[in-house]
Every structure is written in C-alpha cells, then in structure tokens.
Design a protein around this nucleic acid. Sequence first.
DNA 1: CCATATTGAATGAATGTTCAGCAAACTCTG
DNA 2: CAGAGTTTGCTGAACATTCATTCAATATGG
Lengths: 230, 230
Amino acid sequence: MKTIDLEDEPAETERRGGSERRGRKASKEVRRQQLIEATIDSLAKRGYSETTMADVADGAKLSRGIVNFHFESKEKLLVATLQYMYDEYSTHWRNAYDKAGDNTADRLKALVTADFDRAVCNKRKLAAWCAFWGEAKSRPTYQALSGARDTDYQNLLFDLCLGLKAEADYAFEPQALALTLSALLEGLWLRLMMGLEDVSRETALQAANEFLLTVFPRHYARGSSGIQRL
Amino acid sequence: MKTIDLEDEPAETERRGGSERRGRKASKEVRRQQLIEATIDSLAKRGYSETTMADVADGAKLSRGIVNFHFESKEKLLVATLQYMYDEYSTHWRNAYDKAGDNTADRLKALVTADFDRAVCNKRKLAAWCAFWGEAKSRPTYQALSGARDTDYQNLLFDLCLGLKAEADYAFEPQALALTLSALLEGLWLRLMMGLEDVSRETALQAANEFLLTVFPRHYARGSSGIQRL
DNA sequence: CCATATTGAATGAATGTTCAGCAAACTCTG
DNA sequence: CAGAGTTTGCTGAACATTCATTCAATATGG
C-alpha cells in the first residue's frame, strides 16, 4: 500500500518572515500569528484533545507562559485559530470567484477548483478543520465558524445553480442541488483528511468535476485535461 | 428560525431492558453495553475532549470506578464504543442490501435510503461519529474504524455503479462516481450533524435521491413520493 | 460463606493559569 | 553619544485543578 501525497505546504518553518522584527520582541501581531500556526500544527499532529499549551509553545519555540500572555486562555487561542482559518478560506474562495469573470459556468467551476487548491486543501489544514468539527456540536462558540462553507457560500452556490438552470433549462431542483454540491465538497475534504484510501487532491477534484459535467451537461464538456466550458 | 427535527431515538432511558438481571449485578455483557451507550451519550452531549469517565459513569447511574472494572481504561472504552457503532452501521447497510432483492438499481437505492434511517442517522449517533472523526487522523487505533463506509462498502458501491453502467451505457467513470457517491453521503451526514441550516434527514435523503436520478436517468424517475425505479 | 460485581475515597500525573522577575529595545537627559 | 530610566515582551517555576486509575472495603446473589 502506498501512502499518497496531499503534500503539505511549507508550514512549520520560518513563517514569521517579512520585514518584522524577529527573535526576542517581535510585534504583537507577528507573535499571535506564529502561535496560531503552531496551534494548527499541533491540532494536525495530535488532534484536538491532545493539543496542549505546552505543545503549542514548544512548536513556536517560545516559553510556556507565552500563550496566556498573547491570548488570555487556551479557549481564546483556539477560537482565534478557527477564526483565522475561516477568514483564510473565505478570502480564498471570494478571490477565486472574483477572478473568474462574468460567466456563470466559469464562476462555479472556479469555486470548485478553489476548494482543492493547495493553499487551503492540505493535510495540515484539513486535519485542523476536522479537529474543530469534532468539537463544534458541543461548543456554541465554534459552531458559527466551523462550517467553512457558510451561509454566504451556500447562497452563492444556490444562485449559480439557479443561473445555470435558467440558461439551459435543466430539470433539477436548485436548492437541493446546492446542498448536494456543498455536501459533496465537504465529504471529499473529509475523505482527503482521513487519508486512508487512494484519494488525492487530484482525484477529488476530478470527482467533483465529473459531478459538474454530469449535472450540467449543457455547460461543461470533457476536455483533454479536465473539463472545459462549452 | 425553526430548529428542525432529526429527532433522537429513545436513547438514554432504560436500554438495559430485556430479560437480563438488572440493578446490582447485571451480567457482564449488559453492563458493557450500558456503559457504551452512556459513552455515546456523553460524546454527543459534550464532545470527545470533554467526555470523562465520571460523566460516563454518572450517565449509566453507576459508580466512578466501574469503567475501569469492565473495560480497563478509558482508551479501551472508547475503542469498544467505536467498534460497536461500526458494527451496528455495517450490519445495518448489509441488511438493507440483502432485503433489496436482485435488481442493481433497487440495491443502490436501498443502500442510500439505509444511510438516512433513524436507527443509524440521528443527532446522537452522528455527533458521536464526528467526535471520533476529529481524533481519527492522530490515532492509528481509530483510523480503521472511524470510516464507517469502509472498503467493503466502497467496493460494493463501485460494483453497483459498474453494473448500472453496463445495463444502460452511461458515460461516467465508475471509480470516480463511487467516490463521489460515498463522499456525498458522508458530507450530508456532516451537515446533518452540524445541524445549523435547514437540513433534515428528509431533505438530505431527497438530495441524495436527486443525485441518483440525475446520474442514472435511465434507471430512476421522479415519482409521486420520492424517486422510483423505472 | 464463597465468589464476584460494585463502590468511592485516595493517589498521582497531566495540564491550564498566574506572576514575580528578567532582559531587550526605546527614550530621555546631560 | 553615553548612561540612566522606562516600557514592554518574555520567561519559567509555582500553583490549582481536573481527571484517570487504583484498590481495600462492601454488598449481593448463589
């Protein structure tokens, strides 16, 4: 059995770069960011229940008391970490959408493609997401943030489905289809995270694209590499 | 905003019924089962990281030391709980499959329907599953069991997709479609678990059925109530 | 009474939080 | 520009709490 890819992004090493002071006395924001990254590392490596303040501090190569100095409690560190991932994911798909141009089919494809981009879809981040999912139901604070694909995203998917239906007169029910699509994306993430089977970012994206192709046959067609807009 | 259903199964109250002795000195197996149910309750109510031995014991209305007597450690209790849920889910879909008859389309529909049956798909169980998912990546012991839809299930889906393709000459790639289908089911579970939006067991099942209908138009058709085989 | 399931107080390990002190950078002053 | 003073980020040992585990004593059914 070969363990397949889904390679990590750089992570871990020297993230605090930029033009900021380093070593002792970095700026407040830089330290916070550094600790958030260390938290994601720990969540990915050890899971939620085994993520400790000591592990985060060690990961950031700082002292034990540091987290309570910059965040105030473990709880607040975790919320800040979740918020950070939420904002990052949100920004990511909005950018992809904005860059996609005016065509509805292109826009939908851009959203789907963005979901499997290395920047947001890698072992480390997926594992961290899943760690939060596992706690979300019992923690009101997490609930709003842990559904990365939030109301805005859901509404956008719905509008796009509606648009494509209007353009080519499909039979499907747009509301149900939007739900199906976002559930599929989340389900593929979950499988990537589990990382047992032979699913890679590429095969997941391919599966999602095949779905688009099947559901919107009048908008997409199989091309030499992946699907294309008609 | 109305909070929607996904009603719990009886749970919690008087599960230890049957013809077994109760009160002090129940049989070994009855106690174990009782503790496993209490564990699922706790996982669902408090999440993995806040599930304590004390909470489990209290939930089962037994003393603090009881878990270490019947299971040996917290770790082993959790593994036994996961194993129990795994077996239950596994048995459930195999039964549904066996009852479905010889027709391939019926069999696939039976599997999908089974996935949203109250017995396995309810707030309590879904929350417990998700609690384990969050820890699975960092715990080898959980990994094999926490993907409820295991290799057997995956292979069966693949065979069914292959069968339907052969019967009606569809264009899709069976391997990718089987992945898509199981990811969709898992993604719908995840959304049901999160329980924020207006998704109920019924709408989830409807979405999954719409998917079948779209992908296998030559096998299913929209009926007066849900989809039907052609 | 014997075997065994059950109890619950005691124990110790793990871990989040606090805080008095330290040291680096910045500022003021002569 | 040197040195004193001040601010502020940072440290790590001490503390308090939570929690899994142990086990001697107890209750129960046969």
